[in-house]
Design a protein around this nucleic acid. Structure first.
Lengths: 258, 258
DNA sequence: CTAATAGTGTCTGTTAGACACTATATA
DNA sequence: TATATAGTGTCTAACAGACACTATTAG
């Protein structure tokens, strides 16, 4: 196969131009694990392997809008905030030709994603777990192993208990997204993107623990969250309503206000 | 002028492709101020205005390599680490046509940049100062004004005392670069990219203060830096040599070791 | 009652800054 | 000597985690 490099000429100069695509890492939390949305490819290359939803940029379109359009077209999800992650440019990353990809990440509460997935049968939710560590918080103490390796994969992907090797360079893209998510956790509002409008403080703590991959101190976490003013100016406010789900004392529901 | 959209066809699909360029924000510290490297455009659009060094991506080239090549070709600087910043895709950002730009930032000690600039007469060093605040640490207390505005410019650019309005969207790119630099300062090694191999602890502190735009506590800063192991595993080590520059007690020179 | 989670109070070690002090060079 | 910066010791306040405790629901 001869690799395609689209020849382009213009006033600007005679510069061949790469195809420009967008790939989306849509992150959610399901069953105590971080998870990302993928779908199985139906054609070569990487037929049968899972890849991130993606698409090419249209003329006159901002990359942010491309990302939103891809989410709408491929997952039926609208009104989700997206954030640019990194641009991947390895000339070999797509066997079909020269395709540079701008990766985005987006966050969605699981219940919204579940509704969307029921209308798009080809979508799959892939669990993301720290490498060489139990896949779920429920089956083992997280954060026990600390490692500084960078060459070895930091994350393991799995769907229905099966390990996943995504197509293209999408494993790298997912790893980059999760690292970015961790880095933004304590100064941005990413945690709330994974929660519904009302949630208990322990829900919020579980989101933080899930992203960080380690346990947090409960009294301190609660104090810090309740005192804090978030970057958009809002604070946590008790609603007076309670979540009565388990067989224990009900937990108060909070929301962002002011 | 009809805006150019290069028509491209390929196996991958019939997708028009944008031109893909790289723009570099080369940051240094000169005379107590952050500064970036620019040059005056000699042709339309934006003839006479200052812009960042940039260039188009070549086929088969990684974007990181494009950034290094641009630094080499336009500023005669080699062996400088570059880091991808953000990809700017506003369809209107270049009046000549559809040009998506991947911005990079790079750091260089002023003495190296000065040597390079003496060989490239068209280059200019543009001072970067926090908006509505004295342009230099020496003429006023920095960090006195705190603002949360995002729509208004956060930075002011100036060369030879004259305010600068760069061409294209390069003001936005510079602002994004400085914000990123601040965010990375306390967990990465960016400060050392702006210093020669040997430096005094107060040099290091001045770099931090310059990037943050506020004063730091001297005893604490020194303790923290001397105890700390940096991400690459190295630590600060006293060299036994001293800088005898002023009319006061000489300051010991330190370097990164181990 | 027990089980299980919700939520709080207190202690301790670490971190960060304020402030004051000593040290040592040049002029 | 005066002065300017180099470099340090100590105090205090805020922060973060460990731990133990009380509260309240379902069953």
């Amino acid at each position: 196969m001869s690799r395609q490099i689209p020849p382009v000429t213009s006033e600007i100069g005679e510069y061949p131009a790469p195809h420009l695509a967008v790939d989306i890492v849509l992150v959610t939390i399901h069953d105590g694990d971080l998870a990302v949305l993928m779908h199985a490819r139906t054609s070569e290359p990487f037929a049968g392997q899972l890849v991130l939803p993606g698409g090419f940029v249209h003329p006159g379109e901002l990359l942010d809008d491309t990302a939103k359009r891809v989410l709408r077209e491929k997952a039926g999800l609208s009104g989700i905030a997206v954030e640019q992650l990194y641009t991947f440019s390895d000339p070999q990353r797509d066997p079909r030709g020269w395709v540079v990809s701008v990766a985005y990440f987006a966050l969605v509460p699981y219940d919204r994603l579940q509704a969307a997935m029921s209308r798009h049968a080809n979508l799959e939710l892939v669990a993301v777990a720290p490498c060489s560590s139990p896949p779920s918080r429920k089956t083992g103490k997280p954060g026990a192993s600390r490692q500084r390796s960078t060459a070895v994969a930091l994350l393991e992907l799995s769907a229905q208990g099966q390990a996943i090797v995504p197509g293209f360079d999408h494993m790298t893209i997912v790893t980059t997204a999760i690292e970015r998510l961790r880095g933004k956790l304590d100064w941005s509002m990413v945690a709330f993107g994974l929660l519904p409008a009302r949630f208990t403080l322990y829900d919020l703590q579980r989101v933080h623990e899930c992203i960080l991959g380690r346990a947090l101190n409960k009294p301190h976490f609660r104090k810090r969250m309740l005192e804090r003013q978030f970057p958009d100016g809002r604070r946590l406010r008790a609603t007076g309503a309670f979540f009565r789900g388990g067989r224990q004392r009900p937990a108060e529901l909070y929301e962002l206000k002011e």
